[in-house]
Each structure stands twice: as C-alpha cells, then as structure tokens.
Amino acid sequence: MSRELAITISQLSKTFNGREVIHQCNMTVEKGTIYGFLGKNGAGKTTIFKMILGLMAPTFGKATVFGMDSVKDNLEILRKTGSLIETPVFYEHLSATENLKMHMEYMGGRSRDMEEALQMVGLSYVGEQSVSTFSMGMRQRLAIARALVHRPELLILDEPINGLDPEGIRDMRKLFCYLVKEEKMTILLSSHILSEIEQVANRIGFIVNGTIVEETTPDEIKDKHSLGIEDYFMKITKGGRSYE
C-alpha cells in the first residue's frame, strides 16, 4: 500500500555563481516517518533543506511539501513546518519562554503549551532564564522546542543533536520517535552521528557532492552491508576508498 508523501523533490538543482552545488536531486519522504539525510560537510544537505522551506529558490526542478510548491506556497508550507537550520539563533535578551511565545505569535494557529514544549526537550527548569546564559546544548534543545511548539506537521532539523551530550542525544532520539508515533509528525533530519540516524530513521538518503546517490532503509543497509552504516557511508561518499 502506497503511503502519502510529505515531501517530494524532483530534478532539484541549485547553482551559485555558475557552480552547480545541487544536481538533479530526487527524494521522497513519506508522511509519519523519519527520514535521515546523510552526507559529508558541504555535500548540499542544508541547501536542500533551505530549498524545501523556500529560503532559497531552485535553479531547476521543484520541491513540494504536502503537495504544495516550495516557492509559490511558501507561507503555507512554513505554517505547517517547524525547522532548525544551521546554528540556532535567538533573541538573546529574552528568556526561553519569551522566545517561544514570540515564535508562537508569529506562527499563529494551534500551539502547544510552552511549558510542555520545554519539558519535552528537558528545559523545563530554565524557562525564565535569559537565552544569553544558555550553553550550546541548551540552545540546541531550545531550538528543537521552538521548532515543535506550534505543533507542525513536518519537522526539518539540520543536525539537531549537534552539541548535545550523550543523555541529550538519547532524549532527542526518544522525542523524535514519540513525535512521529504519537503526534503523527513527519521528520526530515540530518546528522553526522550515523548510529543515531540508523536508530531513528525509517529511511535514509545519502548525498554526495550535491547529488542524492541512494535512498534506502536501515534494514537494507544491515542486510547488504554487514560492516554497518559507518562503513557503508564511507563506501558511498568516498567511492569505496578504505584506509584499513
């Protein structure tokens, strides 16, 4: 049975100053699943995320979210999406709660309780603290809280577990699974921690030099490649080159 698609990108390309950084990418993300996006630094993960969100316009091809065009229906897509792209930025003089409140006012619609959002990311004890005093890990947790506070249908998270300690990584893993299972969200995330992606993702996409070279599942990787996802990743990104 075919499932509904949350994201579809077809023949997506992006050129900067005559240099094509994204080349004819195709990708599909099913509703209610977690899609892990893997690639080396500079491979083009963030650029694709930005094009899906309408922060950048594709040079060629198109991206659709819930059937809506990323360029034409940008505002409607943003309303249904929570995102964390690159380093999280906040209004430093405001507290965590005030930052979330402001975000909710901009996003409008049906929002969850701010306390609930902070609790979900393990920040319930620092709601009134100014964001300027937050550590990198706390900022990352707050950015995730901000992405989900307005109850989006889709979460796009660019390296969301960066700067988190092992406990934080485990908490986020549980949170992502909870959001998909209980709240029927769809999550598209990237990370350099391959084992995490392997544990949470239903489907994994590999991008190499601006081209999505493979879409597979963690089970298929296990079946086809006994050495695990790390070795599989190296094989794909380096064309099979090994230092062992």
């Binding site: 969100l53 309408g54 922060l55 505002l75 409607e76 943003l78 309303r79 995102s83 792209i85 690159e86 380093t87 930025v89 901009y106 996003m107 409008g108």
Partner: peptide
C-alpha cells in the same frame, strides 16, 4: 545580514 534572517524568513508572514 546575520543568521537571524533565516529565523525571520521562517515565519509564515510575508
């Protein structure tokens, strides 16, 4: 000019 632009453009407001 800063990374706050990403945040501004992420709001569903024109």
């Amino acid at each position: 000019a800063s990374k706050k632009a990403i945040l501004l453009f992420s709001y569903p407001t024109s």
